[in-house]
Design a protein around this nucleic acid. Structure first.
Lengths: 145, 145
DNA sequence: GTCGCTGCAAAGTATTTGCATAGCC
DNA sequence: GGCTATGCAAATACTTTGCAGCGAC
């Protein structure tokens, strides 16, 4: 699979550019998140990593996922419920969040976010990212209510 | 002041409609959040309430703010950093969130969210609310980096 | 060789839960 | 009067921090 080495390359370059070190843990965590291919908690990433590379700790996973978010290679999804989720997708998309069970699903829909981004810049924000969050009840929770 | 009694009335009606009880604590918490007039944590609401009505506890504040969110009389703002914030504004608006310090500011900008809401409904979500979240660095944190 | 990164353990913070009592309906 | 909501305290869940050793550069 060429995907994994591309991931490694992208992360390696991003780390070097910032003067950070390229460690096996960071590469493994990045690969694990992207192999999972969906929103994942730090715990889930740790389990996935541990299957392949022993001796990785949860604090390192948290630190690395945070780092990936800063580097723009992953994104912290703020579910507002339960543990934080990390999203391997970095292309523009949106999220639906269930207020009952915390489930998060991707939404692909064209939305013109420029007005909101401009408003943020107008308030002095150095805006890095914008997305729509739809909240409500997921199909399962809605059927139970 | 008529504002306070309007708040009480709205909450009272919403509670009765769901068969919930109207208690002094709930009224006081609702008034406190709206008097603060900005995103506030449960602790801040508790302090505000305690100045006026003694004997209100933090668990009750959490439960009531959650209830207000369900009733649509306030909104939980998911800052993704630090304690949860509750927003007395329920009219359509958006948020800018600082990824460094967690600061949250309101954004008033016209954005057509329908495509995202429809996408959520297409996935079985009973969508209740949609908003744009812009993340980045606030003016203060940006100037420090 | 230096300094950043890591693992481990422990602390800290935010929020929820259990249970007995009070008070709304 | 019944049953929900509350207060208190404790538990839980998640995430971060401190420190000593290791390893990338």
């Amino acid at each position: 699979m060429t995907g994994a080495s591309q991931l490694d390359t992208r992360l390696t370059e991003a780390l070097r550019e910032r003067g950070n070190r390229v460690t096996p843990q960071r590469l493994a965590i990045n690969r694990a998140l992207h192999r999972l291919g969906r929103h994942a908690t730090a715990e889930e990433v740790l389990r996935r990593v541990s299957n392949r590379v022993p001796g990785v700790s949860l604090p390192t996973v948290y630190a690395t996922l945070e780092l990936l978010d800063e580097l723009g290679l992953a994104r912290r999804v703020t579910a507002g419920e339960g543990p934080a989720l990390f999203d391997p997708r970095t292309d523009p998309h949106h999220h639906a969040v269930c207020r009952r069970c915390g489930r998060v699903e991707d939404l692909d829909a064209p939305v013109r976010l420029d007005p909101a981004v401009r408003a943020a810049r107008g308030r002095g924000f150095r805006a890095a990212h914008a997305e729509v969050t739809v909240s409500g009840l997921c199909a399962r929770c809605a059927s139970k209510s």
